[in-house]
């Protein structure tokens, strides 16, 4: 159900662009205004969200330690999974962000008669999630050739490498295949795995379908509903230079693609997609486990009511003296009633 809703929502968005541009001829709205609004929304939204997170302090240093601590000199520390220095944290975050290290640990629990529990390795999620994210990244980077003139050689190079298969005309990009496979896995897993389906919200399907829509419209544009690439570059460069132009030779399919991307940008800061920013700020991962070495300061630490030794001794002095325990005040002076 939730998946269908989200799918139709994306269909609806496609329809909006088709009617808006193809039917009503609102090229300026879809080609200029919405993209500008979207970019602005994304940048401001992203910054606001991160600043908002940053406004709340981290009162305690609570890294999740995933290996041997730094302790006695002859005990081998796990410097990455339980970092005691800033460099260790940098490495830990590097592996977390670029190789999804925590997800790599994933296992799947199985129950057998016996009674017996087993933990099978379950690296598929890790693999496909990694494929999806890297493909996305490369596609993003290679799109930069639309927003730069002259195109820096790094973008050209990435474009070349991605098209290295030299199959089809124009060449199929490897990332086009990878991202489709990745998306298919993530979607099917969400729909077919009962546990994952159970925890999923519409907000989990929507971005998947949206990105799928973006990828599909992009592929259509290149292979099936061919449209004027030179014209597209004029539009994108126009947007970059703040001098928008809208050549007539560019087909509606491009506007659909652009609209879906705009929606993604607008949706991003308000959604779970902010995990992109959040992963850098997660206190259980980005803190040094030097807790007992260096005092962490809590900005809102406030004094609390405690039960003092004096109050304790006042209550138990007699019994303490009787048991031969040392006391601070001798028995005679003890104010009998002074209990807390």
């Amino acid at each position: 159900m939730k998946a269908t809703y989200s799918l139709f929502l994306v269909f609806g968005l496609v329809l909006v662009a088709l009617i808006g541009v193809g039917g009503l001829g609102l090229h300026y709205l879809f080609g200029v205004i919405i993209p500008y609004v979207a970019v602005l929304c994304f940048i401001l939204g992203f910054i606001c969200k991160v600043l908002n997170w940053g406004r709340s302090p981290v009162p305690f240093r609570i890294p999740t330690t995933a290996g041997q601590q730094f302790s006695l000199p002859w005990i081998k520390q796990n410097k990455i999974d339980n970092p005691s220095t800033m460099w260790g944290v940098v490495l830990r975050m590097f592996f977390e962000i670029f190789t999804f290290r925590s997800l790599f640990r994933n296992t799947k629990v199985e129950l057998y008669d016996g009674p017996k529990l087993a933990y099978a390795s379950a690296k598929w999620l890790w693999l496909f999630a990694l494929m999806f994210h890297y493909a996305f990244l490369v596609i993003f980077i290679r799109h930069m050739r639309f927003f730069t003139e002259p195109v820096p050689s790094i973008f050209q190079f990435i474009d070349k490498v991605d098209g290295v298969l030299q199959v089809g005309a124009p060449h199929i990009y490897i990332t086009e295949i990878i991202i489709l496979v990745g998306l298919a896995f993530l979607l099917l897993r969400r729909i077919l795995d009962p546990k994952i389906r159970y925890i999923s919200l519409p907000a989990d399907y929507f971005p998947l379908f949206l990105i799928l829509g973006i990828v599909v419209s992009g592929i259509l544009m290149r292979f099936f509903v061919k449209t004027d690439v030179v014209g597209i570059k004029q539009i994108t460069m126009g947007l970059v230079m703040l001098k928008p132009v809208l050549p007539k030779s560019v087909g509606t399919i491009f506007y659909v693609h652009l609209f879906l991307v705009s929606v993604l940008l607008i949706y991003f800061p308000f959604s779970k997609l902010m995990h992109m920013g959040g992963v850098f700020l997660s206190p259980t991962r980005n803190m040094i486990n030097n807790n007992r070495m260096k005092r962490h300061v809590n900005p809102w630490n406030y004094p609390v009511k405690v039960h003092t030794y004096e109050a304790y001794e006042d209550e138990f002095r007699e019994k303490m003296v009787e048991a031969g325990l040392p006391v601070d005040k001798p028995l005679e002076q003890s104010p009998a009633e002074n209990k807390e």
Partner: peptide, 17 residues
């Protein structure tokens, strides 16, 4: 008062790991 609380509320992707 707790950045953990804010971030953990916002970024879960329900991957189910």
């Amino acid at each position: 008062r707790f950045r953990t609380f804010k971030i953990f509320m916002d970024i879960c992707v329900r991957c189910g790991a």
